[in-house]
């Protein structure tokens, strides 16, 4: 028999993939962000950002939209997830599939359909349409991780709480809600991360009237401002990184049954 192949060989394609499509682009973003056109090291790109009120404003506005979207998704998504996980209220798994179903359709197509819907209803496109579209697009990403944690939660906890004198309201507030926090954190990340960087959705739903930070980055890169664009992308990455830390970190979520 031929000598056995070292098992780590199987990891090689993944390693190459990660290197080419994750690590290398990140390093390049980092390098470009701290270089000027001639290639020398500089902080000029960041100074430029803070000296361009329009870009700072777009940045803050993007965060605001992302926060509003995330909060709305949470407010709408938590009760939905709770109802779906509650076997006395929801006896079929079809409901779950229905909530996840929109994810089967391409986001751009869904957004175009939303535009058509607004036209049909003669509703104006703009900020309202933008938030509606974002919530519609990202709601499943909030529902699913919360549903997952609630569904996996040991029913004996709620029984124990009832047994100790907790009314249904107290059971929810003192046991179910705190124990579902990993799912909530996971959902917040899943919604906040894509909403802050999205641009196509915003362009379509506001007829290019409202600009989000993703669009700013895209415009700069399209017009050849690679270094400035990279700096902006890095700033956005930083914000996403901070949210990740605040939502409990990956480890905690993994351990407690969140989505990622």
């Amino acid at each position: 028999m031929a000598k056995t192949v070292n098992r780590s060989v199987w990891a090689a394609p993944y390693a190459i993939f990660l290197l080419l499509f994750v690590a290398l682009p990140l390093v390049m973003v980092l390098l470009y962000a701290f270089q000027d056109k001639s290639g020398s090291i500089t902080f000029a790109n960041f100074v430029k950002f803070f000296n361009t009120p329009e870009d700072v404003h777009t940045f803050l506005y993007s965060i605001e939209i992302a926060v509003i979207t995330t909060v709305l998704c949470l407010v709408l998504g938590y009760p939905a997830a709770w109802i779906m996980s509650n076997s006395s209220l929801n006896r079929s798994s079809i409901t779950v599939v229905l909530f996840i179903l929109p994810m089967w359709i391409n986001m751009l197509i869904r957004t175009l359909a939303t535009v058509a819907l607004f036209d049909f209803l003669r509703a104006p496109l703009g900020e309202g349409a933008l938030i509606f579209g974002m919530v519609y697009n990202f709601l499943p990403f909030m529902i699913y991780p919360i549903y997952n944690t609630l569904n996996k939660m040991d029913k004996s906890y709620t029984e124990a709480a009832q047994d100790l004198g907790a009314s249904p309201r107290h059971v929810f507030a003192k046991v179910v809600l705190p124990l579902s926090m990993p799912g909530v954190a996971s959902g917040i990340l899943m919604v906040f991360m894509p909403t802050i960087s999205t641009f196509a959705v915003a362009e379509l739903l506001t007829m290019n009237r409202i600009k989000l930070f993703g669009t700013t980055i895209q415009e700069n890169i399209n017009s050849g401002m690679w270094n400035y664009g990279a700096a902006l992308a890095l700033i956005m990455l930083l914000i996403i990184g901070i949210t990740t830390v605040f939502s409990g970190g990956d480890k905690d979520i993994e351990e407690n049954g969140g989505l990622i």
Binding site: E159, A160, D163
Partner: peptide, 16 residues
């Protein structure tokens, strides 16, 4: 159950 003056020790403890 929450209004019954009884308490249970569960098989798998069910500690919060």
């Amino acid at each position: 159950p929450y209004e019954r003056p009884l308490n249970t020790v569960f098989q798998r403890y069910a500690l919060f």
